[in-house]
Design a protein around this nucleic acid. Sequence first.
DNA 1: TTAATAAATTAAAATGATTGTTATTTAAAA
DNA 2: TTTTAAATAACAATCATTTTAATTTATTAA
Lengths: 149, 149
Amino acid sequence: METRIERIKKHLHSSSYKLTPQREATVRVLLEHEEDHLSAEDVYLLVKEKSPEIGLATVYRTLELLTELKIVDKINFGDGVSRYDLRQEGAAHFHHHLVCIECGAVDEIQEDLLEDVEAVVEQRWNFKIKDHRLTFHGICYRCQDKDEE
Amino acid sequence: METRIERIKKHLHSSSYKLTPQREATVRVLLEHEEDHLSAEDVYLLVKEKSPEIGLATVYRTLELLTELKIVDKINFGDGVSRYDLRQEGAAHFHHHLVCIECGAVDEIQEDLLEDVEAVVEQRWNFKIKDHRLTFHGICYRCQDKDEE
DNA sequence: TTAATAAATTAAAATGATTGTTATTTAAAA
DNA sequence: TTTTAAATAACAATCATTTTAATTTATTAA
Ligand SMILES: [Zn+2]
Ligand SMILES: [Zn+2]
Ligand SMILES: [Zn+2]
Ligand SMILES: [Zn+2]
């Protein structure tokens, strides 16, 4: 945890940004909820528990900055809000998501899976891929079990 | 064109909805701009040219209805607006997108490409896939040519 | 055909997420 | 220490989308 914060601090410094207390509090919340897919409001409420003086706009600005630096990925599952996902350290690509249309759960796929597809796209469409977003909508294993009862 | 409208009309009827003049005007705009990825506002302005009395809320409701019936797909490229894409008739899956981070162009990939990946996901994650969203972000062929100059 | 009912629409207001503004604070540089 | 720049809080403003209430249109029943 602390070492990851240290690395993020260096990452900010190398782009001449500072890890202010507000930014650190925000990053800590993201680290403590790595499994989740928090909205800006979610992050704000969690940060507020420990640092009640922080403003929502600051959370937004911090998340924007972290997105710019590719420390987090911004993603949208079709409900009206953007969600923020810490990028795995050293991960070449953004991970994929499984969104259950019954219970709303969002599970993650860390494996790449797209290598072959991306090779085809780069060749056939002459498109230089920098990033991707892949989300599957369907029924999660939990809801399949429920349905069988 | 007319036959596609007819089929959409039947599709609505089979779910006991009517193809009102406002809905027809909206569908026509979508058909006339199949290549594009129009926002609700975009659709509204285009519909207004021929049917100035239509309201923005009606366009939103119509697009919502068409999305429910899977006549269009709602998609989000990360700017703050939802965009609406006519589904290819008979297409099993939603097509993929190439978003250029330099010029903003959005190109389409109609080929499936994901068959193998989806088989793996269904098996390994025990997830019943109903739909997907796949978007690549990168440099389009046009901008690559520009960069070489 | 006419009265009653339901569906769809308009226009306006409300909502909710996000962004911009301004004064203030904090940290770095001179 | 004084000066300057960066960051923040509090609030206002904006933008996309949804809701509401009144009206219109189409459908059904008498
Ligand atoms: Zn589920
Ligand atoms: Zn995730
Ligand atoms: Zn381009
Ligand atoms: Zn498309």
